[in-house]
Amino acid sequence: MDQEAQNCLDWAREARTGIAEAVFAESKTPEQMLNIVRATLDAGKCLFVTRLSVDVAAQITRKYPEFFGYDADSRTGVIGQKPEHDKKSQGIVIVAAGTSDMTVAKEAAETLRFNGFQPKIIADVGVAGLWRLLERIDEIREARVVIAVAGMEGALFSVLGGLISAPVIAVPTSVGYGVSHNGKAALSSALATCSPGIVTVNIDNGFGAAVACIKMLRAEHS
Rank of each mutant, 00 (worst) to 15 (best):
H85N: 07
H85P: 00
D86F: 09
D86K: 11
D86A: 12
D86E: 11
K87C: 00
K87V: 10
K87W: 00
K87A: 07
K88P: 02
K88Y: 01
K88D: 08
S89C: 04
S89H: 11
S89R: 12
S89T: 11
Q90H: 12
Q90M: 13
Q90R: 13
G91W: 07
G91V: 04
I92S: 01
V93L: 00
V93M: 10
I94T: 07
I94K: 03
I94W: 04
I94Q: 01
V95H: 05
V95I: 03
A96S: 14
A96C: 04
A97K: 04
A97R: 02
A97E: 03
A97M: 03
G98P: 02
G98N: 03
T99F: 06
T99V: 09
T99K: 04
S100A: 15
S100I: 01
D101I: 08
M102C: 13
M102V: 14
T103N: 05
T103I: 04
V104N: 00
V104E: 01
A105L: 05
A105W: 01
A105M: 03
K106C: 07
K106F: 05
K106E: 12
E107Q: 15
E107N: 12
E107F: 08
A108P: 01
A109D: 14
A109H: 11
A109P: 12
A109K: 14
E110R: 11
E110A: 08
T111N: 08
T111M: 13
L112P: 02
L112C: 10
L112K: 09
L112W: 08
R113H: 11
F114H: 05
F114M: 08
F114Y: 15
N115Y: 13
N115C: 12
N115W: 14
G116R: 10
G116A: 11
G116P: 13
F117P: 00
Q118P: 05
Q118M: 15
Q118K: 15
K120C: 05
K120Q: 13
I121V: 15
I121M: 12
I122W: 02
I122S: 07
A123D: 12
A123H: 09
A123C: 07
A123Y: 09
A123G: 10
A123M: 06
A123N: 11
D124P: 07
D124A: 05
D124S: 02
